[in-house]
Design a protein around this nucleic acid. Structure first.
Length: 266
DNA sequence: AGCGTCACCCGGACGC
DNA sequence: TGCGTCCGGGTGACGC
């Protein structure tokens, strides 16, 4: 389930292999939201363009072309593959871009949740996003002030990309556990000290996820190991590593939510 | 403003 | 074994 660490990892993997190359062909087989209206039009717009850079903003992969930005959101089951040569498309390949130098960039997405945009200015997509949790703007002071302004429960608030951009379900549960805060805790009631703990916990779990190449669960996203280090996510019924109490699973805003009832009191 | 609910997908897990 | 059903992830739309 791609969240920020997976996206970050994928960007680091593909960037050196595709920056500087030119797009020779583009085969768009499926995409939910796309600025270009048709596969033919899409190919017309990108073929011949050079890839200038590959970056990330929140969970979006930003492939900067000479005249456009190709934005890719992997959602849960999406993945970007670099292949050599011109192999046959694999099952669930949704977009295949043939590059100069004999390389192929394929966007594979089993569950068709991922999205692709071709835009001239990525700001139109990014403008609603909150700050980057690993960026300079995200400080304990900012977080405390931002939490106080809201009257929302911590779990849905942290998942809200307009509040803070990049946390998904796994990392939100893990961060709240590390910070010893209950997922249903009212945001405006969080103290400065707790905000500092939450800030540090968010950075810690994201950096840990990146270091372990993200989490591989089920079919999604090969190669990560973070799933072996979950403290609460997907651990319902298991003892808390900190206190031994049984990890609980509840549903908050349609999302599975895992926490330690003893360490994270309401 | 914030919350609940639904929709989008489909491989895998589960129950019969 | 095979078939039906449910689940889960991120996000946007919609109604209260």
């Amino acid at each position: 389930m791609p969240e920020l660490p997976e996206v970050e990892t994928i960007v680091r993997k593909i960037k050196p292999q595709i920056v500087g190359r030119q797009i020779l062909a583009a085969d768009l087989r499926w995409a939910r939201t796309l600025a270009a209206p048709s596969p033919r039009k899409f190919a017309e717009q990108v073929v011949g363009q050079k890839i200038l850079n590959v970056g990330r903003r929140a969970k979006f992969i930003d492939i900067q072309l000479a005249e456009f930005h190709l934005l890719i959101h992997l959602r849960m089951s999406g993945y970007l593959h670099i292949k050599r040569g011109t192999n046959r498309p694999e099952k669930h390949d949704r977009l295949i871009i043939q590059l100069s130098g004999g390389r192929l960039l394929a966007f594979n997405d089993t569950r068709k949740f991922g999205r692709v945009w071709l835009v001239s200015d990525p700001k139109e997509i990014f403008k609603k996003l909150g700050p980057e949790p690993l960026g300079k703007e995200f400080t304990p002071q900012w977080l405390h002030a931002a939490l106080r302004k809201k009257h929302r429960r911590l779990k849905p608030l942290l998942l809200d990309q307009t509040f803070l951009a990049g946390l998904g379900n796994i990392y939100t549960d893990e961060a709240l556990n590390l910070a010893k805060l209950h997922p249903l805790r009212e945001s405006s009631a969080v103290s400065a000290r707790q905000a500092k703990a939450l800030h540090d916990a968010i950075r810690k779990v994201l950096n840990e996820g990146i270091r372990r190449n993200g989490a591989s669960i089920d079919w999604a996203y090969p190669g990560g190991e973070f799933q072996n280090y979950f403290r609460v996510y997907d651990c319902a019924g298991e003892p808390c590593q900190n206190c031994g109490a049984k990890i609980k699973r509840i549903v908050v805003g349609q999302r599975g939510t895992h926490y330690c009832p003893r360490c994270q009191r309401l």
